[in-house]
Write a protein that binds this DNA or RNA. Structure first.
Lengths: 150, 150
DNA sequence: CAACATTTGTTGTCTATACATTTATTACGG
DNA sequence: CCGTAATAAATGTATAGACAACAAATGTTG
């Protein structure tokens, strides 16, 4: 069984609320670890993959760094440096915004799009296999997560 | 509303399975960020707090580094360096294991226990307030998380 | 018991998170 | 306009996660 009590060898929790915090952190770490290994052969990290997805969603419209930051899974992450990494790999381009020279327009390149499309199908298949739940349970889980942050 | 679609400005997901991965990662990041801020005034990180909790659970019995690693929320974390940080703050002590000189016995100090007891009550109260769910929903969420990793 | 394998922990390197600070540019109020 | 505030991005620093490589000690086997 995959019970959290066994996974971290802790028998008792203060209450279900405190247990669910631990359970969430553990589950997330479990997901991220497997994602890391998954992306590694493609030369990108999960966070970089996420930025590429955000950029593709723009359908060619340039996006500013702060706009990317707002859409990232981790709001505290450093979009500026992630984009620099992606640029070094030729997966995005970055140019000064003509209207406002403080801002920087970021766009995904052809190479970026190709890598993303290649990897995405694998990711989506892996994500699905990874989650040992029926469809109605997944929907429940999504609803509970949305509500708990509410 | 706290729907994940709004939180990261993504309207469509491939399917509920892929959505729940994103939802989990986002929710976890949301939790960790607030925990960081919470622990900061006490001079420790969430991970260091977790190690202290593991050590207290031993009730004075020394624990090896690898045993701590096994019980950590993030199995890929570097227990060796976390323990070094805690030692520098005087919250744990570390000594060579007499039976097996490869191993290192780690114990929580009085200062470590005092800090942990002080912080824990605040943490547990905050965790509970943080989660906008009824008791039966929290139990459901725990069950779904346990099952999904199964 | 000597040679080799295994285990335990430390260390090195790269990436990312969590801020605080800095620099450049634009907006605004007198 | 000019000076100051506000904004966008880059940069600095500390901690942690994800490995790979290493050293020391112990197990194992001929």
């Amino acid at each position: 069984m995959g019970k959290i009590e066994d996974a971290i060898q802790q028998k008792v929790f203060k209450d279900p609320y405190n247990k669910v915090v631990v359970n969430l952190l553990y589950t997330s770490s479990y997901l991220v670890t497997s994602q890391h290994a998954f992306f590694k052969p493609h030369g990108i990290s999960p966070e970089q993959y996420n930025v590429l997805r955000i950029l593709r969603g723009q359908n060619g419209v340039p996006t500013t760094v702060s706009s990317i930051q707002d859409r990232m899974l981790n709001k505290m992450s450093n979009a500026s440096r992630l984009i620099e990494k992606l640029k070094q790999k030729g997966l995005v381009k970055r140019e000064e915004c003509p209207n406002d020279r403080r801002q920087v327009d970021v766009m995904i390149t052809e190479d970026g799009l190709n890598l993303l499309n290649l990897v995405q199908q694998e990711v989506e298949r892996a994500n699905k296999q990874f989650i040992n739940l029926e469809l109605d349970e997944v929907n429940q889980l999504n609803d509970l997560l949305d509500k708990m942050r509410g």
